[in-house]
Design a protein around this nucleic acid. Structure first.
Lengths: 269, 269
DNA sequence: GCGGGACGTTCCATATAGAGGAAAGCATAT
DNA sequence: ATATGCTTTCCTCTATATGGAACGTCCCGC
């Protein structure tokens, strides 16, 4: 039985035996939510649900009727599908969600594993805003504080936030960040560099302030597949060396994927 | 015990989304969904949930933990909020939903109450596509069939679909529909008319084909607040007279509101 | 026409899942 | 320090949810 898009989303980060921790005394609810999970894969008939989930037809029927009566499911020609109530909840959840809160535990984990400072930030128009920081175990710390705003084109976090943009936008933002004082060759180089980042899905950035700060940044995607925030690790280039880089990039990307999953991203469609 | 249940009035054919119906044997699920409904209004603490919903703190706690473990809820500084799972479900529901199927029962109701033909249609670029029709009880029927496509600016349904557009767009589409053969005065008149429709949230349209067909159309909004389809009633101007119009418009608007609600719209924000 | 299979629905006796009281932790306010 | 309010755990008892059985309906093949 190809079970495929079941994703386990970490919630609090500090559960020793995460696994299948079950809140007891909620069989009915859990079964109903199992049904929702099956329906995610597309319309399905009640009898199939009963089989797949190992419950009696009666129970499947009862739960499905209950969910339908609340508009969590709707009836279609070929079985039950996700219902209109979820549209409402989805939109409201989009408004209520606090990306930083979701990302926090993952940031701590990443920081713990790598020892580096971890940041998340979001895009504000042509700017990149630092939202949260977890300081690593290293003596050397990157000073950027939550709240800081920098031109989106010239930070690692910012570049990650731009990966979905078209090249013309990269160019425009780069020129604006440099206040127009750029040569065509520099623009060329910048765009080429961004192209490389995009291909790898990961940004390696050396600070242009000459302070020797280097960072690896990766975008995080929301339920709609759009980049909503980005995560990065940063340190002195002295620590974040070229030979460490592949392994670290791998870890940052994995963290980003986990966070993306936790905010509802379900892969490119 | 042995309670005799003689409540068996509702045939399955016409379930109104009133919410009064109760599927028995699902207390736990229903309570959990009640919790979701409360959380919709914003973050809320477990104890408040218990009070509002008339359940023990223990029960509220258990359900809330269960919902959290499935990511239907998330914990915030000031209580429980909608969780990331809903982002995923919301997006998927958006893809799966069949507006016509949702609208159908409401169309039938409206047709039954008014006696007129009822239509729904959606916008396809600069065109309006008729999606579904429910023929009324009147001898005279409007011939427009599902599948028909007309310039969006020159049907009642189409105009309703345009109510959110800026005036420049109204003008452009009107001119295009008329193949450019319009005087500035006509454009002025058209835009003024649309302004009136927008103000009332309802379109009164007399066919420009000279066949004496008149319609009342109202837009339907999706969970994001955007106009996704529109509903209309149509008949000969002879039947759809000026004195009937206010009452009919009222009924069409109410239907549109109900359908909007059924597809997740929750009012202007 | 008839019989068999699949699905949705209703009924009912029963076991068990879930409700809630009581009380222990944990904060933040007075 | 004491108090107030929230979360969390434990435990008992019954209201609740469960699944087998049976019925209605549709569709297919014979």
């Amino acid at each position: 039985m190809g079970r495929q898009n079941r994703q386990k989303i970490m919630q609090d980060g500090d559960d020793k035996k995460d696994g299948a921790e079950t809140v007891k005394g909620t069989q009915t609810l859990m079964r109903a939510l199992d049904i929702m999970d099956e329906v995610i894969d597309g319309p399905i008939r009640a009898a199939d649900l009963a089989r797949k989930l190992g419950m009696s037809k009666t129970t499947a029927h009862r739960l499905v009727q209950a969910l339908k009566s609340r508009n969590y499911l709707s009836v279609t020609r070929d079985g039950f599908a996700l219902g209109p109530k979820l549209l409402q909840l989805g939109v409201l959840a989009t408004e209520q969600i606090d990306y930083v809160r979701v990302a926090r535990p993952f940031m701590e984990l990443l920081s713990e594993r790598t020892g580096f400072c971890v940041f998340v930030g979001k895009r504000e128009g042509d700017w990149s805003r630092h939202l949260e920081r977890v300081t690593g175990t290293q003596r050397l710390r990157v000073a950027t504080a939550p709240g800081d705003r920098r031109p989106v084109a010239e930070t690692g976090l910012g570049k990650a936030l731009l990966l979905d943009e078209v090249e013309a936008t990269w160019e425009r933002l780069y020129v604006e960040a440099k206040d127009g004082k750029v040569t065509p060759a520099q623009i060329q180089a910048y765009v080429a560099e961004m192209r490389g980042h995009k291909a790898r899905g990961e940004v390696l950035h050396d600070s242009e302030l000459g302070d020797g700060v280097r960072s690896i940044a990766v975008p995080i995607r929301d339920a709609k597949g759009q980049i909503c925030i980005a995560i990065s690790i940063a340190s002195a280039a002295h620590y974040l060396t070229d030979d460490l880089r592949p392994g670290l990039a791998e870890q940052v990307m994995r963290s980003a994927e986990l966070i993306s999953g936790a905010v509802g991203y379900s892969g490119p469609r």
